[in-house]
Each structure stands twice: as structure tokens, then as C-alpha cells.
Nucleic acid binder design. Structure first.
Lengths: 111, 111
DNA sequence: CTCACAAAATTACTTTATGTAACCGAGTAT
DNA sequence: ATACTCGGTTACATAAAGTAATTTTGTGAG
């Protein structure tokens, strides 16, 4: 019956909703290096299917994080890049990297 | 046929795998305020089911992020709290909050 | 001890999200 | 025309998450 005592900040909630979807963070991470084509992203993240990549890119474009650019060249070329909003996620990635380096242990196979 | 050109840091990958699971970040966020009981976490995050909360807490405990403490009181009390590793995620949360405040727009209902 | 109670977890079942692979469509090259 | 590439979708199969009932564990009442 009682409402939640501690409401979350709606922006924070929205951000989490976006970022904690499977693959989203890794796609953004890949795009931090620069613009990439559909194929390149798909090929660089194993187990990521074209179907889901397509969905995620649409969501990210809709959210203003990713920009889709069509280059009308010989074979038309489509590139995905980060907007300022997307590049604003860089410090976040650094935090994750830093935290992971400090705390995550990778298990070596025992021979 | 060709292997991926840019391998991800395994620690980074592991961190993302942990943190980008649905609910994980929000559970950790709630625990940043201090220890909480199962019921309290469940009640404070709408749509989070007890089943998944149970799974996530086990994963987080396994990963060393969350500590489960049993207090043998009148009705036994079980509290979940963050370890140092878990508290190490605080800056990340702050970054997300900062990014969200800067970039996320919340749509108001039009009357 | 047996019964009832409460919180923490689990189980069975339904719904949603993701993975797989085949296919479409536009543009080029042969 | 034929075949090939890239971006994208569709149909179908599997895995993850939501719902609600149930079990477990430990208390206290009788």
C-alpha cells in the first residue's frame, strides 16, 4: 500500500534504463574510438547479433547518444558515431575500467 | 574467420557483464545509503521481483560486492551491505547521476 | 511439542528479451 | 542478368525476467 520511501531521480532512473540494457555500454565503448560501420561493431562484439545491434543503435539514436550518418558514395556507406551526449559517457567508462582494474580478478585456468 | 581486431580488457568485460545485468546497478545504488533488508530493497524498486532480487544478491555476494549478514534476533534479521569493492562503485554512480542531470530530458505530460 | 507467524528464498508457470539463421533491397561489379 | 556486399528485417528457438503460490527457517504462544 505505502509508496516507496526513497524515490529515485527520474533522470538517473532513465539513464540506468538506457545504459543497463545488454550491449548498450559495449556499443558506446566501441564508438568512443571513433565512427564505425554496422559490420565493424557487429564483428567486434562476439555474440552480439545483427538484430539486437540494429535495435540498440535505434534506441541510442532516439536517445540522442548516437548519430547515424549516410555517406552517398559508390557503395553507400553508413557510419555510427557518438554525439556530445554520447561522448559525455567517456568518464563513466573510465570509472568502470578503473574499478575493474582495482577489484576484478580474472581466473586463470589451472593446468 | 578473422578474430576480433580490438580485444576488450577481460576485467572491463567482466565488470560490464556484472553491472549491466538488469537491476544490479539499482540494487547497489540502494545499498550505498547503508545496509538494507531483503524486503526493503524489494519494496523500494518497483517491478523488481523477489526471485530476481534473490538471484542478483547471490551474484553480487559471489562477486564480492555485497555482504550478507544474519542477525539471530527475535524474528531473524538478514541485512545486505556493500563491501569495500561495492563502495568502490560510488564514483561511478555519481558520474551516472551527473551525466543524467546534464543530458537526460524528462518528458512532462502535456495536459 | 504443535501451531501460527514472519521474512527470506525457491518453485511452477507466463511473458518478454535475446540468439540464430534465412531472407530482402539497394548498389556494384562481372 | 547474375552474383556479391552491406544494412536491415523476419520467423522461429532459447534464455531471462515477472507473477504468484509455496517452502524453509527461526520465533514465540499455547
Amino acid at each position: 500500500m505505502a509508496a516507496e520511501l526513497n524515490q529515485l531521480c527520474p533522470r538517473f532512473e532513465k539513464a540506468i534504463e538506457l545504459l543497463s540494457k545488454r550491449w548498450t555500454t559495449l556499443i558506446v565503448y566501441r564508438l568512443l574510438d571513433g565512427p564505425r560501420r554496422f559490420m565493424d561493431i557487429e564483428g567486434s562484439l562476439s555474440n552480439l547479433s545483427g538484430k539486437v545491434l540494429s535495435e540498440r543503435l535505434k534506441e541510442l539514436e532516439e536517445a540522442g547518444i548516437v548519430l547515424r550518418t549516410v555517406y552517398p558514395e559508390k557503395p553507400v556507406r553508413i557510419e555510427y558515431s557518438l554525439t556530445d551526449m554520447g561522448r559525455g559517457l567517456a568518464p563513466l567508462m573510465d570509472d568502470i575500467q578503473g574499478w575493474a582494474t582495482r577489484w576484478i580478478k580474472i581466473e586463470q585456468e589451472q593446468s
